[in-house]
Design a protein around this nucleic acid. Sequence first.
DNA 1: GGAACGCTTCGGCCGCGACCGAAGCGTTGT
DNA 2: ACAACGCTTCGGTCGCGGCCGAAGCGTTCC
Lengths: 236, 236
Amino acid sequence: MVSGNTLAEIAALIGDVARANILSALMDGRALTASELAWHSGVSPQTTSGHLAKLSEANLITMSPQGRHRYYKLATPEVAQAIEALMSVASFGPRRHRPVGPKDEALRNARTCYDHLAGRLGIALADTLTARNHIVLSESAGALTDEGRRFLCDFGIDLEAGRGRHNRALCRTCLDWSERRPHLAGRLGAALCTRMFELGWVERIKDSRALAVTAAGKSGLKQTFGIEEQSANLGD
Amino acid sequence: MVSGNTLAEIAALIGDVARANILSALMDGRALTASELAWHSGVSPQTTSGHLAKLSEANLITMSPQGRHRYYKLATPEVAQAIEALMSVASFGPRRHRPVGPKDEALRNARTCYDHLAGRLGIALADTLTARNHIVLSESAGALTDEGRRFLCDFGIDLEAGRGRHNRALCRTCLDWSERRPHLAGRLGAALCTRMFELGWVERIKDSRALAVTAAGKSGLKQTFGIEEQSANLGD
DNA sequence: GGAACGCTTCGGCCGCGACCGAAGCGTTGT
DNA sequence: ACAACGCTTCGGTCGCGGCCGAAGCGTTCC
């Protein structure tokens, strides 16, 4: 309960295959039930339950009961960031043979990364906003310009949303594992993602972090952001 | 050798107390010998050797032999970043009683964080450069302005230095664990740190990541950056 | 050449923790 | 009320991996 929480303790928690699977499954920011997580983790429900208890204990995830289900989600954006950083390190080294299946291709095209957009779509958005001088992206860092603020406001985004107790950063960047280039994270990235869902521009593909760009999304992205299908290979 | 390198494998490597100690000791960016690391890790030299082999195998650290010594250092800035992120998560939770000793106080005042400056000195530098509009720091992100580029050039900093194969970011920010505010990292942070050492403004305190600000440093910081002692509590 | 030193390899011990079966508890639905 | 369901707790097994002592290899110094 007092939760010592040293570097080694946290890393050890992530350093178990079953728990790493659980955390990876939660990386899209949604809350999942214990059963769903048991499925993802690859071990029995009892064992999964133990893992979930440990992760909660260390404040890596939080639980909210709902009827006879218990929903688990990542506790804070910082946790997602740490896992993302570890994944980045993990994907280094001799680029091992990674056969690209069709589902993998969908992931590369567009997906959620914790609570923001990633993949070619995420990159395209970051590129467009940069080209229009709405954001200034200095490699792995970013700042929003006044024009950008106005533009996003017009687009229906509330930049103050999600300004929680943690005073989360407005505009962060996050290294895209498939494109190896930064995309938008932080409150801005999250708000952009939320808005696209609201507008029905993107939809979740079942059982995956991958996203499908709807017809409305294709025309909207073109008109509002000037993103053509081929530029991001949307609709592959 | 092929190094599967999954998320769980990397995290498990960091998730051992002895190895975490080793990595923490290397977080100041210097290369240390196996013996020194054995001392830091708290286990015997044989055991340490095994740990170092595993860390090397996974490309978290690299080794360069030198005489009868073997120097180990973190392999890439990404590794440092991942560890930093984990530390950030670890220091969350119920702020546990952390008795502040004199050595701890020195660490809070000024220290190196991987290869850049942290602590009150790091924060003060970031604040000053921001106030003078030399950098634009959007919470956890940053970009260098043209004026800033000129200023730093005059200060004797080569911004192209360290532009290695990894195309490391120029201006990143890094959450300071003692101040809970961002300080400067990336190539810029590293160059700033290097320059301060060159000028003899700061010196390492033995057996610690803490730094001492020299007399030359105090006057230099005041004249060049307008940083008064009390503003950063230098000389505490 | 021999001794001291730095580091690694080998072998064996031992404890922690992941795992599952069985059972228990609370919720839902009929 | 009862059964089905979702999830957790308990108890016991087992294997992985951290640990050290002893020994081996290469370097340095006199």
